[in-house]
């Protein structure tokens, strides 16, 4: 099995938490993993990406080859489109539809969503609304992880464990809220596939 994932978003939107939860799930499933992140200047409100590779065979490159990604997980709709050159012809885009507008020339949201609709394999969900429903607007990244989980070849329970490991220090309430967000994202995604 092999899952090559590109995580996309804007600095501060929590894509590294998604990566960390999947990473934990992969390690506890005895899978090989490589995950490349970008730190530093680009974190200041710029576009950020992380490459996450999971396989039952040894992984050579830390970077996903362009044109080889099985999935783009994005917490922002325009950012999902930015990495289309990375996606394989059979790959899926799983993205939030909530725009993060911090530039003066952000395109009309309708245009962005129209581009997403043109993709053959795309799950686009209103992660912010789902997160609010689940109890915390801040958990929209975890909603996206839940939505993406249906495409990841790791048992869902392991990903739940990943959430527990990630948020355990913050107390049971935070863990439960994030688990709720995770499951809600998964349900929405299953409906749309």
């Amino acid at each position: 099995m092999k899952n090559d994932i590109v995580l996309a978003g804007v600095g501060g939107q929590g894509i590294l938490s998604i990566a960390a939860a999947i990473g934990h799930a992969a390690v506890s499933s005895n899978l090989n993993i490589k995950q490349a992140e970008v730190h530093g200047m680009s974190q200041r409100g710029g576009d950020v990406q992380s490459h996450l590779r999971i396989s039952d065979r040894p992984i050579a490159s830390d970077l996903v080859p362009a044109g080889g990604a099985d999935m783009i997980i994005s917490v922002e709709p325009m950012e999902a489109l930015r990495y289309l050159p990375m996606l394989s012809p059979e790959g899926w885009v799983v993205t939030s539809t909530t725009p993060f507008v911090n530039i003066p020339d952000y395109p009309p949201v309708e245009d962005v969503l129209a581009e997403l609709r043109r993709l053959k394999r795309c799950v686009a969900i209103d992660a912010d609304a789902i997160a609010k429903e689940a109890g915390s607007a801040r958990a929209s990244n975890i909603v996206m992880l839940g939505a993406a989980s249906t495409f990841i070849d790791i048992p869902f329970e392991r990903i739940e464990d990943g959430i527990r490991a990630l948020f355990g220090r913050k107390g049971n309430e935070v863990v439960e809220m994030n688990l709720k967000a995770l499951r809600a994202g998964r349900e929405h995604s299953e409906k749309m596939r």
């Binding site: 289309l84 050159p85 990375m86 996606l87 395109p107």
Partner: peptide, 10 residues
């Protein structure tokens, strides 16, 4: 490579 980046992306 995959598809090009759509023009709408800024």
């Amino acid at each position: 490579e995959g598809q090009p980046i759509p023009d709408v992306v800024k």
